[in-house]
């Protein structure tokens, strides 16, 4: 079970407090390098990849499932784009125009959507558990990715495509702008569309959702297609930032995206989790990661420290909730002592 403090609206306030505390801590530890415009730009440049992967994980988890194929799908999307570019532009892929680049992106997105729909179909109609379906898809895609690339790195992408992941609009990285637009779109999707609202209902109780005129299976298929669309978005950014694709980029991000969901208050059994919580969670993870990196620590030590910080965050959250509970009870008791004659009836 997810701890109760992460499910309440106040959990987002706690997360925001934690974020501020970490920013202050990192700035104090490293005043020359952390609290700078340059670092802010660099963080907003890195944030979108982990944010897109986490949002893709989130929708699957809200539906009561999980998408373990999220990274494999992103790498597959990148490889499909590279292959499409070669097929259309041959050796001149690097000089290809925006039209060809958009075509490759469209092809990659279509491939990701098909994979997502296939997973959704298996989960919704064949009723294979999500963890099995997506684990199998991950294994399949990892194999396919290796077979296609023979383990090599494919590079040489057109300028337009690199700009999507790497470009700047004034001082703001383009991928960050894309992230802002996508988060706004997600806010509308989750709160104002039938599919989005239905997603929460079916994640909490699929039987009652089915009895409530909700086409549960169709919503599930759309959910996994959406989850895979986030993989495709990740691929667009990764191609630009790395100027290459490979069978197994970013594999360590799989667990990070699950962690972000947990921190953001998504119930792993489905049905709850807010977009605000997710955004705060990925920003916290990014700040911790960048902050620790800037301290120039041993990379292995960084990983251990990251884990430690997560543990401290969660323990602090629990503690805060406990304290609030104690304070609430004490206040209630005082109120009752102040007015001993007044009791609230329980019946009509």
């Amino acid at each position: 079970m997810i701890p109760a403090f992460l499910q309440r609206p106040s959990a987002n306030r706690t997360l925001a407090g934690v974020l501020v505390a970490i920013v202050v801590l990192m700035s104090a530890l490293n005043p020359q390098r952390f609290p700078t415009i340059g670092n802010l730009i660099s963080m907003s440049y890195q944030l979108p990849i982990i944010a897109f992967l986490s949002l893709g994980m989130m929708v699957a988890m809200v539906s009561g499932g999980i998408n373990l194929a999220i990274i494999a799908t992103a790498n597959f999307t990148g490889i499909v784009m590279a292959l499409l570019l070669r097929a259309v532009a041959g050796d001149a892929a690097e000089e290809a125009g925006a039209g060809v680049a958009l075509l490759a992106m469209g092809g990659g997105l279509a491939a990701a959507l098909v994979l997502g729909a296939v997973m959704g179909w298996l989960i919704a109609y064949v009723e294979v558990p999500a963890i099995l379906t997506t684990l199998a898809m991950m294994t399949l895609l990892n194999g396919v990715n290796l077979v296609i690339t023979k383990g090599y790195t494919l590079s040489g992408f057109p300028e337009f495509l690199l700009g999507v992941g790497n470009g700047m609009l004034g001082p703001v990285p383009i991928p960050f702008l894309i992230l802002v637009a996508v988060v706004m779109g997600m806010a509308v999707f989750l709160r104002r569309t039938r599919t989005g609202l239905g997603l929460y209902l079916l994640g909490s109780n699929p039987i009652a959702a089915g009895y409530s005129n909700l086409h549960v299976r169709a919503v599930l298929v759309r959910t996994y297609a959406l989850s895979s669309a986030f993989s495709a978005l990740t691929a667009f950014i990764m191609v630009g930032q790395l100027n290459s694709v490979k069978a197994n980029y970013a594999e360590s991000y799989l667990l990070v995206s699950v962690l972000a969901c947990f921190l953001g208050g998504v119930d792993p059994f489905g049905g709850t989790g807010t977009l605000t919580g997710m955004v705060l969670a990925v920003v916290i993870l990014q700040v911790v990661s960048t902050g620790v990196n800037l301290l120039r620590m041993d990379p292995f030590f960084i990983q251990a420290l990251w884990g430690f910080i997560i543990l401290v965050l969660i323990a602090a959250g629990f503690l805060g909730e406990r304290l609030r509970e104690v304070r609430r009870l004490r206040a209630a008791r005082l109120a009752q002592q102040a007015a001993p004659g007044s009791t609230v009836g329980t019946g009509p």
């Binding site: 609202l197 929460y200 209902l201 909490s204 009652a208 009895y211 409530s212």
Partner: peptide, 19 residues
């Protein structure tokens, strides 16, 4: 089991059929 999504609000449940 069949009638309600217990964790969700009265509003979400009442309006589920007519979104």
């Amino acid at each position: 089991v069949q009638g309600l999504v217990m964790k969700h609000s009265v509003e979400a449940n009442v309006t589920a059929t007519v979104l």
